[in-house]
Design a protein around this nucleic acid. Sequence first.
DNA 1: CATACATGAATTTTT
DNA 2: TTCATGTATG
Length: 688
Amino acid sequence: MTVAPTTLNPAQMKAVHHLRGPCLVLAGAGSGKTRVIVHKIARLLQAGTEPSRIAAITFTNKAAAEMRERAKALVGPRAARELVVSTFHALGVRMLREDGQRIGLKPNFSILDADDLLGVIRDAGGCADNALARRWQWTISLWKNQGLDVDAAERAASSDDERVAARVMRRVQERLAAYQAVDFDDLIGLPLALLQRDEEARVRWQQRFAHVLIDEVQDTNAVQYELLRALVGNGPDATPFTAVGDDDQSIYGWRGATIDNLRRLPQDYPALELIPLEQNYRSTGHILRAANAVIAQNPKLYEKKLWSEFGDGEPVRVIECDSEEHEAERAVARIQALRAQAGVKLADFAILYRANHQARAFEQKLRAAQIPYKVSGGTSFFDRTEIRDLCAWLRLLVNEDDDPAFLRAATTPRRGIGHQTLATLGEFAARSRTSLFEALFSPSLPALLRGRAIEALHEFGREVNELQHRAGHVRGGEDVRALLMQWLAGIGYEQHLYDGEDREKLAAARWSNVLDFVDWIARRCGGEITQEGGTFVSEPQTLLQVAQTISVIISLAERGDEQDVVTLSTLHAAKGLEWPHVMLAGVNEGLLPFGSGDEPITPERLQEERRLMYVGITRARRTLVVSTLRRRKRGREMVAGVPSRFIAEMKLDAAAPKEDARERLRRLRAELAARASSSSEPVPSPSA
DNA sequence: CATACATGAATTTTT
DNA sequence: TTCATGTATG
């Protein structure tokens, strides 16, 4: 049996069947790229490739989960389970857990998330100013994303601010090494260093995969690209790979992604097969024409023009609003009007904007109208204080030298270990070049601290050790749940929540989050195969094993997903999603394209802003409203709002070509066919 | 001097 | 929404 031909168009087919060499699939918005990836996986299995030798790399856990889910539907659960579907970072963790020792990393290293890292940076830079520390963090991350180490960063620093940042970076890296901790950027950089420095490891990893698929290549940064190259190798023996991406949707340049990678790909791999996917299965003609017109203003890396067999649909509407409040009211009115139609749900609507604070007015008006909504990119479940508290404990179990985790766990809930005690302990640890945890049991410590403080520290150390011991042995969902509940009771965490919050309802909500979290971990220990990417194993696990991957497998345990609510989202967070009815809000100069007004925007930034507009337009399936503000707050006073230049670029005035009778017939037939093929998709069974 | 409250400003975000 | 700064009060 072959991969069902009726479900793929010729270009998709070509991409799916190109197995031997490298290929680059230029997937326009809504052109079915995930379908191509998944079908290609099926095709590879059918050709006899072991599922465990196929790697599909994505950027987000969500994308990885979706991909595994869709693969499961096509190739069955058994093969899907063995596939390596993971984020760049999760793959990096995997490599480092296996081979980290080869570059001087303990196998139980900790992974610091952005918040912990900020703490380390603040500390290393000796400053209490959060904003400054955050700028350092940003600068350091950009350097790391460009593949610069501390020495290179020092050389690259071109201003006083940057020179300070480079000094801070050096101290941060020293501390991370002492903590046996890595940050998210290191999860890419260190595996790359491993492959570059260690011939044996390189060969082993290069032989590991028979085919590598990379989603959203336009979002890769320099280091990720190098990691990819190191993984697939060079020359005629290179592992075949399938890179999928769209230069027109590259919107993460500001965090180090470089479109240069797309440019280099054909040079680095001369055999590269270029396959553009231009047929769009999402939007109506009016919407697509607007999108094409806008993006046509950008210089093109690869020529590509979206088309669809759907009809023109409704024209794109531009509305002018007096203020943000007015804009929100009109959005509400539109939602209410359309909702009156049969079959239109709240989940069919999205309001997209450039910057988070723009959500405010919409939230207010939606609440007033009693329309439920969700704000994407709002604080995730795992960012909540209570969850982060518990994660600190888990990290400490994995790696007792993780000092940031130590500090958090030792002080929440309060247990008689105060500032002064920790400062003394910290000084002592720094002098003797050990971690805080190690310092805690030193025989010379009691000379420095009062008896009560010492006792509290030792008690804490004993607690950690005991939990550590049990976490390594208790296996499986129910037993782990019991262990966790016992531990929470032991440290009095529920009480701690009620103490710290005078509104009882809020404390109760937090405790309920904690219970959900316990549930979540227990399920993972039970070996339930998960939706999240990054989880590879399916037999029952110990708490310790699960804790080891905690900061990477953490993803949105979103329950709001299936609920019927309106979506509010930034344009960035909307990429990859689609809705029948979309409103782009605040499409004004200064906002989109973003700019301060004082300094002129560089061509590169403008192009990225334009791609952002393009991404926004192409999220819409059936109707699109573009809204612009007549007046806009700027500092204290209201200033006149200037409609974004992108509105003119949509060329909405140009009359849509009239649809003649023959065209209409063709469209209806196509719509019917599309409906038929999306409802029942033949499933090929790989003969592996 | 420290705490409490109000006011104002705000790129974009994942791991 | 959050975060930081400023004012007023104890």
